[in-house]
């Protein structure tokens, strides 16, 4: 069985919040500057669809889902 891990490249993040809109249970935003915070590094089956959507809408290409 493969596990999917979410990688967040924080220096690239421009804090647009698109990942929070797409996957509110996987991502949050830091209060002071809005930089993305990873809540679930290994999102389970039920959150995978949202996590992929977050990867797709991130304008800065800062989110990557890696299967292993």
């Amino acid at each position: 069985m493969t596990t999917t891990r979410v990688e967040l490249d924080e220096p690239k993040c421009v804090a647009s919040g698109q990942c929070v809109l797409a996957a509110p249970e996987v991502f949050d935003q830091r209060d002071d500057d809005g930089v993305a915070v990873l809540l679930e590094e290994y999102p389970g089956e039920e959150l995978l669809h949202d996590a992929r959507a977050a990867e797709a809408v991130c304008p800065a290409a800062a989110i990557r889902l890696v299967e292993r």
């Binding site: 421009v14 919040g17 929070v20 500057d33």
Partner: peptide, 11 residues
């Protein structure tokens, strides 16, 4: 961008 982004946080 991070200095002006606060007001546009999703929440």
């Amino acid at each position: 961008r991070r200095t002006v982004n606060g007001p546009f946080l999703v929440k």
